[in-house]
Design a protein around this nucleic acid. Structure first.
Lengths: 205, 205
DNA sequence: CAACAATGTGACCGGGTGGTCACATGGGAG
DNA sequence: CTCCCATGTGACCACCCGGTCACATTGTTG
């Protein structure tokens, strides 16, 4: 919730602020990111920033909101396949497309990773609780998998969640790695998801 | 490498410093932890601290070293089973005992988690490169599993590593959760490891 | 007791932060 | 041309940080 003043700004200036906030919060997690650095680099007076936002947190919430809006938009095509493919294929599509998002909008991606890594869980909770942001459809996806029986229902459901989330998060974090081979990365994502699907122990089937 | 002065201190005072450093670095990751807070709470002059350690980093490295020494000691009994049980059972023993460590020494545990979560990868690298600390035997464990054929060798080995690490890290992070049911937690760890072992997709075997 | 080295001390430094405020600027409306 | 209100500004505030240093205190040794 930026102040009304912010929306009165010409689009160009709003973008200027957004861009520099994005850069700063991509470089550092919330606590270490510097508002002073943002205003300096954007060549804006500190005071002006406080005409647009009530403070650092307000700016951050706005940024997170925008970033996730963009990501949702980007992942839209994947959700349209929801009824057509099974859980594992959907997951594959989801992470491959997420990876493309990370490549295309690396700063956006870093912001999301920093958001989840933030040790200030209270802040994250506060942002999520406002429901202004719907972060992810993980839940929905896995729920579908369980319902359809593609995901084994006879083991501790909570544990299934746990493992799925752990792998998913690590996968997304991993997108940051700069020296990933572009051509093979989709294949790599598939390999990881296969391990998740089939388990470490060899199957006799 | 604390200065010699530190080791000349009476044990009681060394412990005092250790305890308060432990508390601070358990509460916050390296960058946000405050040396001033430590000396204030320990009721020691700032200058004194600089008689014992060359600076904040020096104190931190010392602390990490001590914490991991304690943890290794605690996990010793598990490694003695190395030849007797298979990979999955060893992993189960390892994480259950790690959980007990986390319960018994919650501050130590938080310090280790903060250590790995630190965004200052350079610092972590520096500490690890000194080899003064050997953090974990994950590698060794998984290698054994692969060799013995208990862990499937016919899927991308790198991906196996990836999934294993992701789940292991999440499992350890999870120990922090305050409202875990003590009685059922060992069972929960087993459930998670079972999912890791058998995969999400149901087996026909 | 004197001498001397080791250790303890906290005011102080430079530099950073998020946030404030009295004032300058600018662009319609009358 | 003037008035007025929205907006722009940057010096400034209080507070924190890690680190330093001149000096006080202590303890052992001759």
């Amino acid at each position: 919730m930026p102040k009304p003043t912010f929306y009165n700004l010409p689009e160009e200036k709003r973008n200027l602020i957004f861009r520099h906030a994005l850069e700063e919060f991509a470089r550092f997690p919330y606590e270490r990111a510097s508002l002073s650095a943002i205003v300096n680099r954007a060549d804006i007076a500190k005071g002006s920033m406080y005409q647009y936002f009530t403070g650092k947190k307000d700016l951050y919430v706005y940024l997170i909101q925008e970033v996730y809006a963009r990501k949702r938009e980007f992942l839209q095509p994947v959700w349209e396949q929801k009824e057509k493919v099974d859980f594992f294929e959907l997951a594959s599509l989801y992470y491959k497309r997420s990876w493309h998002f990370a490549r295309q909008y690396p700063l956006h991606h870093r912001v999301t990773v920093n958001f989840w890594d933030s040790k200030d869980a209270a802040l994250r909770e506060e942002i999520l609780r406002k429901k202004e942001i719907r972060i992810s459809e993980f839940s929905e996806m896995l729920e579908l998998g369980l319902l359809s029986g593609v995901v084994s229902p006879d083991i501790n459901k909570e544990a299934v969640w746990f493992v799925y989330h752990a792998v998913a998060k690590a996968l997304v974090d991993n997108f940051l790695d700069p020296n990933i081979n572009a051509e093979s990365h989709e294949a790599y994502i598939n390999s990881v998801l296969t391990v998740l699907e089939r388990g470490l122990r060899p199957r006799k089937e």
